[in-house]
């Protein structure tokens, strides 16, 4: 058969669709309900999966926050202990247990260091 007319794809589809029996593409009521249910199910599963992931991440985040709080509390405790240990009374007592004692005035020695009058310049030689 000789090609007398070139048809565009859309035009071809429209022609072919016109040739199909009426109701070819129509779903019956049962089909529509089943389709709707399927779509709803898919969307629900997607939503639940998403929500579950968010919830899991949320609880993990919550756990981490609690852990963070707990660590902060522990850090505070250590800071408190450090501050207590920094008491000069405690340090003096500890020094005494190590056999140290304050220097007496007779033990003090002052050294006079004569600084050079001219700044010393470093030499490469």
């Amino acid at each position: 058969m000789a090609i007398s007319q070139r048809l565009l794809p859309l035009q071809t589809a429209r022609v072919r669709r016109a040739q199909l029996p009426i109701g070819y593409f129509k779903l019956g009521e049962a089909g529509m309900i089943a389709g709707a249910v399927a779509i709803v199910c898919i969307l629900s599963i997607l939503f639940l999966a998403q929500t579950g992931r968010v919830a899991t991440a949320g609880y993990r985040l919550q756990e981490l926050e609690q852990q963070h709080t707990q660590l902060l509390r522990e850090a505070e405790q250590y800071e408190f202990r450090i501050a207590q240990a920094s008491r000069l009374d405690s340090i003096a007592a500890r020094a005494q247990t190590l056999g140290m004692r304050p220097a007496t005035s007779e033990q003090l020695r002052y050294a006079t260091i004569e600084l050079p009058a001219v700044p010393v310049v470093a030499s490469n030689n």
Binding site: R73, E76, Q77, E79, F80, I82, A83, S86
Partner: peptide
């Protein structure tokens, strides 16, 4: 830098 007042739980 020695802490004189601080928060502690």
């Amino acid at each position: 830098g020695v802490a004189l007042a601080m928060n502690v739980n």
